[in-house]
């Protein structure tokens, strides 16, 4: 299964990645190569997972790397559009607690 990563630079500080396919041990390096160099200088990075069917632990490790790099430079990482399977993985690993995702932000807003 292939992975495509589309980069949309909204402006200097805001970048969106539209990812589609499966993020696994074979495809995760592609995401890492695009994502990590951008995780500096306090950028807000949004990753749209609407067309991602599956993420494995290697995929999660790329996001953790990005999360840590963003944290060190005062940036933000926003994850959105995750399907039920992805949300379950984030819930089990408890990564949902530290990584912003749009659904969570919206829920908090409602409260």
């Amino acid at each position: 299964m292939n992975l495509s990563v589309q980069e949309k630079i909204e402006n200097e500080k805001e970048i969106t990645y539209v990812v589609s396919g499966e993020i696994d041990v074979y495809t995760a390096p592609k995401l890492r190569e695009k994502l990590l160099p951008r995780c500096q200088g306090g950028t807000t990075i949004t990753i749209d997972f609407t067309d991602v069917e599956y993420i494995d632990s290697t995929g999660l490790s790329v996001l953790i790397g990005a999360y840590k790099a963003q944290g060190q430079t005062g940036g933000k990482l926003i994850l959105k559009g995750m399907n039920a399977r992805l949300q379950r993985i984030f819930r089990i690993t408890n990564l949902n607690v530290i990584m912003l995702n749009e659904e969570k932000v919206q829920e908090d807003g409602r409260q």
Binding site: I64, Y67, K68, I92, T93, N94, L95, V97, I98
Partner: peptide, 10 residues
């Protein structure tokens, strides 16, 4: 139950 962060992140 699964309430605990993966090791190595925080």
């Amino acid at each position: 139950e699964t309430k605990g962060m993966v090791l190595g992140v925080l």
